[in-house]
Amino acid sequence: MDDERTHVRDFFTERAAGWDSRFPGDGPAYASAVGLLGLRPGDAVLDAGCGTGRALPFLREAVGPSGTVLGADLTPAMLREAVLAGRDRYAALLLADVARVPLRDAALDAVFGAGLVSHLAHPEAGLRELARTVRPGGRLALFHPIGRAALAARHGRALTADDLRAEPNIRPLLARSGWRLDSYTDKDDRFLALARRER
């Protein structure tokens, strides 16, 4: 595992036990974002970088009992918290690096990624790997329960032009990775970039 992935794993390992209690009111934002992903009963969806699995109940509700929900995360401690919270009832959990997803080509209808893109060691390669796993025309949601400015303020820093999630940066990044950005929302209460897998 390279240094950047080790850093990400260590960062989340230290915070896993108290992660959900830090953000207790995020459920409605997750539900809303999943609703906008356009999932249908029977679909197959991956929560990439699922963490403690906060999106998994909403993804399961969207695809129904005939659908497939997978949650993949690099950090064993986060997956343990997902199990302790009972979220393994909604999805199969995988200890996996998003840069090397153990799925065949075009196996999925959609990918959901909460807080994902800024934690990818190599964003373009990671997004390209996710594109590989999604059928042509399938969807990607890059989500955060608060917008870029609110998140920067939470961390005591200012937004900069090189922020990966800024629309002028994320649109070409997605295009180079096999996705077309369909919609972009960056408000105080939500960041959501919805993209479609190019045919």
Rank of each mutant, 00 (worst) to 15 (best):
S32N: 10
A175D: 11
L140V: 01
P123A: 07
R197S: 02
V45C: 12
L79G: 00
R139A: 14
Y30T: 09
G18P: 06
P28Q: 04
S118A: 13
R176T: 13
E4M: 11
A44C: 08
P172N: 11
D105G: 11
P136L: 01
L130A: 08
K187G: 15
R22T: 07
M1P: 11
R171C: 09
R100E: 04
H155K: 11
E198Y: 12
P172E: 05
D3W: 11
R176V: 08
D43M: 06
M1N: 12
R5I: 07
F143V: 14
G71D: 11
D109Q: 05
F23S: 08
A158R: 14
L130N: 03
R60E: 01
G147K: 01
A72F: 03
G42D: 05
G35M: 01
R89T: 03
P145S: 06
A29V: 04
D88R: 00
L36H: 14
S177Y: 00
G115L: 03
G51K: 15
G42V: 02
A195L: 06
A72D: 04
A31I: 02
R54E: 07
L93G: 04
P123Y: 03
G27H: 03
A31W: 01
D26C: 14
K187W: 12
L120D: 04
S66C: 08
V63D: 06
G71V: 05
P28K: 01
D163A: 12
L46G: 11
R197G: 00
D109I: 10
L192M: 04
V98A: 05
V69C: 04
G51D: 10
L93K: 04
L59K: 02
G178H: 05
R104F: 08
G35H: 01
E167T: 06
L127E: 08
L140W: 05
A48S: 02
E4N: 14
E14S: 15
A153E: 09
L194E: 10
R104W: 08
E198M: 12
T68F: 15
A107Q: 05
R180Q: 10
S118D: 10
D163L: 03
G86E: 02
S183Y: 04
R196W: 13
A92C: 13
L159V: 12
A141W: 00
L84V: 15
A150I: 02
